[in-house]
């Protein structure tokens, strides 16, 4: 009976301030979407790092006037180097073929480039990708080498972009979160005001504090849960229609986010939304409205 009473109070409470309830659900949803996006990007960057760093190579570009002897000795030294896992030689011709396929959408660029303007190179895979500096110091002064490039540095830039995206999402999430909390406080104040007579009678006849407070707190929790479901839906839609629809071509750089990750966001966001709203609601009641 008491559970039924509390539930019906929650429903009437939400209906009474329906515009307020919607505003708070939307704000909550935006906040949680941003939080979820931030968490997904974080996990994704983690995954991409291990994925790309596993493949990452050191490129040793050779001068155009490199001699046959310099090339062979370099190749055999690299093969015998304890730091090196394997070495692939890329001739000018292979480099040209790769260039042509990579930029097949930009024929002007391909036409303007001569086949022999691309340097030949060694693609060196290190046993430990962190050891770039050692390789660099070892081979930098040798004849016939024009440049030694660590691809990790290029990746670091890309991951830097992802990290700042994640930070922006997190900041938006926090700002919206604060707005959502203020709306929770406001919603509870309005609810407490419109039920002030009932609350006064309940206190007078000795209804327990939790019984008086539960409907208010549950209203906030319910709004938080709806916000979380909306946020989850937004993330799911973004994944299926945006990342895997319109931006499908990006998947070579940005591997698809596993559905499991997105599904995991539902319980996480629901938990956070419900807990945060419950605490905010309870604090409002306890110290602000003094119900």
């Amino acid at each position: 009976m008491r559970a039924k009473y509390v539930l019906s109070e929650v429903v009437t409470g939400l209906w009474r301030n329906v515009t307020m309830t919607i505003a708070m659900m939307i704000t909550m949803a935006v906040s949680l979407t941003m939080l979820g996006a931030s968490m997904l990007v974080y996990k994704q960057v983690d995954r991409m790092q291990s994925f790309f760093y596993g493949k990452v190579e050191v490129s040793i570009f050779l001068k155009t006037d490199v001699t046959e002897a310099q090339r062979t000795s370099l190749q055999s030294d690299l093969k015998g180097d304890p730091l090196v896992q394997n070495v692939i030689y890329e001739s000018r011709d292979t480099a040209w073929q790769r260039f042509k396929t990579q930029f097949k959408d930009a024929p002007d660029l391909v036409n303007a480039t001569k086949p022999d303007s691309l340097p030949e190179s060694f693609r060196v895979k290190l046993k430990n990708p962190e050891k770039f500096q050692a390789i660099y110091n070892k081979y930098n002064n040798r004849d016939g080498i024009s440049e030694i490039v660590d691809q990790r540095k290029l990746l670091a830039k890309i991951f830097g972009i992802f990290n700042s995206m994640q930070n922006v999402a997190l900041i938006v999430s926090i700002i919206q979160g604060v707005a959502a909390l203020l709306l929770v406080a406001n919603m509870i104040q309005i609810a407490a005001y419109s039920k002030r007579r009932e609350v006064a009678v309940m206190k007078l006849v000795g209804a327990s504090n939790w019984f008086i407070q539960a409907p208010f707190v549950l209203e906030a929790v319910f709004a938080g849960l709806v916000g979380a479901v909306l946020a989850f839906a937004a993330l799911f839609v973004a994944k299926t229609f945006f990342l895997e629809g319109a931006l499908k071509s990006l998947q070579t750089v940005f591997p698809p986010i596993p559905t499991g990750d997105v599904l995991l966001m539902l319980p996480i966001l629901a938990g956070i939304g419900a807990a945060v709203n419950a605490i905010a609601g309870w604090i409002t009641l306890r110290f602000y409205v003094r119900v």
């Binding site: 009976m1 008491r2 009473y5 009678v201 006849v205 209804a207 327990s208 019984f211 008086i212």
Partner: peptide
């Protein structure tokens, strides 16, 4: 009845 119900008495 409200006074009874809010202190946990049954309907």
């Amino acid at each position: 009845a409200f006074a009874l119900e809010v202190i946990g008495k049954s309907k």
